[in-house]
């Protein structure tokens, strides 16, 4: 039974769930992911691990309610259980030997950037955090980032909190000012990661991105999560989810991500109607 031990609403559309999964908690590393099914007939959805506590035997996932699957997940309360919880899948983020790293997070992607920043901090690296959100009410995990970053730059699109603008502006400024990062690790929307790479590439700063394509099984079987990286077909579930940002074909990945948009919209509407009925 994958019981939910703790549930926290981080902002109006983003929820954190801590799930009892002792075997996974023992093995999990930053950058790996979980396949979750909320209920018996739910879709399998991949969610990157946001935190883990091997002593308590719990793993956390943080998700934004975007489709029917996450909407169903969001109906579960503390003490209830998710039907399926599989992991830790994919390769862990490679942080060994890094001493000076910029971790860039965007929106709900910050949830996954956090354990990477924490792991880097724990190994004594200097961590510069740049996190971006659309507006003040969508900001998540600020305290947690402050605790593990030597410097944290927070930006919002509308300027309602922190600096106004997007993450690439402070990133460019830092690099130009001679920050001399060993590596930039970017986790967020594809469009953000694409522009992070556009920022770092001219300076030749190695940039690792965390990809989150459509998956079905997540264990190296279906091939749905394929990406073009360096001109070759790669599978995010077993070859990633981290890849060299300079090599990733972001435009293709963005396009493939839209494959089920019309279905998702219908499914979301159906799930909404169902929930409304339950409430009535």
């Amino acid at each position: 039974m994958f019981t939910i031990t703790k549930r926290r609403e981080l902002n109006p559309t983003v929820t954190e769930l801590w799930v009892h999964a002792p075997l996974i908690a023992k093995k999990a590393k930053a950058g790996q992911f979980i396949i979750v099914r909320a209920k018996e007939d739910s879709e399998r959805i991949p969610l990157t691990i946001a935190g883990f506590d091997p002593v308590a035997g719990t793993v956390s996932i943080i998700f934004q309610v975007v489709g029917a699957g996450t909407m169903e997940l969001n109906t579960l309360r503390e003490g209830e259980a998710v039907h399926d919880f599989v992991g830790p899948l994919g390769k862990a983020t490679e942080i060994e030997g890094l001493q000076n790293v910029c971790v860039v997070g965007g929106g709900v992607g910050c949830a996954i950037a956090l354990p990477v920043a924490q792991a880097l901090h724990a190994q004594g690296a200097k961590v510069t955090g740049i996190v971006g959100f659309r507006s003040k009410d969508l900001v998540i995990l600020e305290e947690e980032f402050r605790a593990c970053c030597d410097e944290l730059i927070l930006v919002t699109d509308d300027g309602s909190y922190g600096e106004k603008g997007v993450v690439t502006a402070p990133l460019e400024a830092k690099i130009a000012a001679g920050a001399n990062f060993d590596e930039v690790i970017a986790i967020g929307p594809l469009i953000m990661m694409k522009f992070v790479v556009k920022t770092t590439k001219p300076h030749g700063v190695k940039t690792v991105v965390s990809m989150n394509p459509i998956m079905v099984d997540g264990t190296g079987m279906c091939g749905g999560c394929r990406l073009t990286v360096g001109g070759k077909t790669k599978f995010a579930c077993v070859d990633g989810p981290d890849f060299d940002g300079f090599e990733v074909d972001f435009d293709e990945a963005m396009h493939r991500g839209t494959m089920y948009k019309p279905f998702e919209a219908r499914a979301r509407e159906a799930a909404c109607n169902l929930l409304k009925q339950e409430v009535q």
């Binding site: 079905v216 079987m221 091939g223 749905g224 599978f235 077993v238 293709e252 493939r256 494959m259």
Partner: peptide, 26 residues
């Protein structure tokens, strides 16, 4: 069991609407 599907390596295999049989059947 079986793992990752093979593709042909021809242009256009990343277009939307191209499936592996594994994915389609799953």
């Amino acid at each position: 069991g079986a793992g990752l599907p093979r593709f042909m390596g021809i242009p256009g295999e990343s277009l939307n609407g191209v499936y592996s049989a594994n994915e389609y059947l799953t």
